[in-house]
Nucleic acid binder design. Structure first.
Length: 492
RNA sequence: GGCGGCGUAGCCAAGCGGCCUAAGGCGACGGUUUGCAAAACCGUUAUUCGCCGGUUCGAAUCCGGCCGCCGCCUCCA
């Protein structure tokens, strides 16, 4: 059985079959670049990164498109309010495009640290104004939209299937509508395709309806069809965007093209911090940069970006995840365990005697690989997949204790670490910098001198002095490990 | 108010009708190893899956009720 994915549109798990054999187009709703990326972004983009990586592992040619929203996303969704980018630009006294540029870079920086593969195309909304205007024109021509006072709205009553993704019906929404309705709209649930810009609005473009700017939902429809076609295989995004954003995308796209917009809709669940929704007012809003630096009052230490990634993979993408210092701490410990095993295996693969691969190990490796793939095929069950990697760690450590194992055995273990833990899960790196040299050379030299002193003391059985040195180093955050071939050190 | 989700060991988290007397990780404890540690390895740590009923030969898994928590519907990935 091949890859099964849970499709939000049908609310069922389905066998994945791309439109074109062997090649897959994926569109994922990207960030609105008005601030640094936070833990919520990490969960979403790591989740879809896993999807892309696994599809490639299975041999598909994947085109991964993820937009950068740099215009049109308003501070509230009633089609009123300020443009998020514009508002932040005023606050930071920057040109909106400068602001968007700097946070776009910040975003890529963080995603690189989380080891997310870069999208093949990262289209900017502001770079596709022409195409967005074209789509509005098409919708007007087909009578799915109407113009009022320089703004254009989508007429939801014309699109009978509106609500099919989020399971809502228009009547109920109208009745329960809590937001103030723009008097220009014929129907409260209608949404803006194009908004007339007030003279002081920072970003605006000429259009057939006067100066204005695109509605937020429009960009995804336009860029998705431009780069991946009218019908795409997979569209991913956060659950909070299922309604209204994705519902509106479907309406616009299908009304304009007359064909299904997306075949598989995938939504990742949300993030909480210490059990509560993450919000600036709750003082639990943690950016990735803060997590990586350990600079937040909710965090006791800095966390390795890949430990954050591992914590995300520890649960299913459709389950919510609660970030807490304790959870991050546990993930960091587990991540270290994997990292240390991989490094030890690689060292042995290079130094152990040549010989035959252990048949028993080879058989176990095959079983682990099969179980890993079965888990991933089951709607990307990374929790199980990760547990398989931990079993591989145990297998590796057992082999390391077996003095007779050949280099080939370690080579095979390393290979599976690379494929499963590296290629697919992205928590095993191809190369690890010398741990000691990470921070600075001077520290390494000084610690090395102290280790030599202690080794001499141990040789002359002066254990009191040796232990005193170790204790002092421990107090300074340096942990010593005596191994058969010498003493190594690491930071606590 | 409308819609949806969740409640499994000290903590995180899989499992969603029989291979479950419930994966994996963290933590804790005992053992091997070590001059002593650390790391690693071996073992122990839920006869039970929020509570109460029901369906079934059989339920953590399905149904009903209750309790608790969370999310979306309003900017958010």
């Amino acid at each position: 059985m091949g890859l099964q994915l849970y499709n939000s549109l049908t609310r069922r798990q389905e066998e994945f079959e791309p439109l074109e054999k062997d090649s897959v187009g994926i569109y994922v709703c990207g960030p609105t670049v008005y601030g640094h990326a936070h833990l919520g972004h990490a969960k979403s983009y790591v989740s879809f990164d896993i999807l892309v990586r696994y599809l490639r592992y299975l041999g598909y040619r994947v085109t991964y498109v993820q937009n950068i929203t740099d215009v049109g996303h308003l501070t509230d969704d009633a089609d009123e309010g300020e443009d998020k980018i514009g508002e932040a630009a005023k606050r930071e006294k920057k040109h909106p495009m400068a602001l968007a540029e700097s946070y776009t870079r910040s975003y890529f920086e963080d995603m690189d640290k989380l080891n997310c593969v870069r999208p093949d195309i990262s289209p900017r909304a502001s770079g596709h104004i022409t195409e967005q205007i074209e789509l509005v024109k098409t919708l007007l021509a087909k009578s799915y939209a109407y113009e009022v006072n320089g703004s254009v709205y989508f007429d939801v009553s014309k699109f009978k299937e509106y609500g099919k993704l989020s399971g809502r019906n228009i009547e109920e929404m109208v009745a329960g509508s809590r937001v103030e309705v723009s008097p220009d709209k014929r129907n409260p649930v209608d949404f803006a395709l194009w908004k007339k810009a007030e003279p002081n609005h920072i970003m605006q473009w000429p259009s057939p309806w006067g100066m204005g700017y695109p509605g937020w939902h429009l960009e995804c429809s336009v860029m998705s069809m431009k780069y991946l076609g009218a019908t795409i295989d997979i569209h991913g995004g956060g659950l909070e965007n299922q309604f209204p954003h994705h519902e509106c995308e479907i309406a616009q796209s299908e009304a304009a093209n007359g064909v299904p917009f997306v075949r598989y809709w995938l939504h990742n669940n949300m993030v909480t911090v210490d059990g509560q929704k993450m919000g600036k007012s709750l003082n639990n809003f943690i950016t990735l940069k803060q997590a990586f630096a350990g600079q937040h009052e909710r965090l006791t230490k800095r966390y390795d970006p890949l430990a954050v990634r591992q914590l995300i993979l520890n649960s299913h993408y459709r389950s919510p995840i609660d970030f807490s210092d304790a959870a991050l701490f546990a993930a960091q410990s587990g991540y270290n365990k994997i990292t240390e095993a991989v490094q030890a295996v690689r060292k042995k693969a290079a130094t152990a005697p040549q010989g035959q691969i252990d048949g028993n190990v080879a058989e176990q490796l095959k079983q682990l690989k099969d179980r890993f793939e079965a888990a991933m095929n089951d709607d990307l069950n990374t929790s199980i997949a990760l547990s398989v990697v931990f079993e591989l760690v145990r297998l590796a450590n057992n082999a390391l204790q077996d003095g007779s194992a050949a280099a080939q055995t370690f080579g095979a273990i390393d290979d599976l670490f690379g494929r499963l833990g590296g290629e697919v899960l992205g928590i095993v790196k191809d190369e690890y910098p010398q741990l000691a040299a990470v921070d600075d050379e001077l520290t390494d030299m000084l610690v090395t001198i102290l280790i030599e002193q202690r080794s001499e003391a141990r040789k002359s059985k002066d254990f009191a002095r040796a232990d005193a040195l170790r204790t002092r180093l421990d107090e300074a955050g340096v942990v010593l490990e005596d191994k058969p071939d010498g003493t190594t050190w690491r930071k606590k």
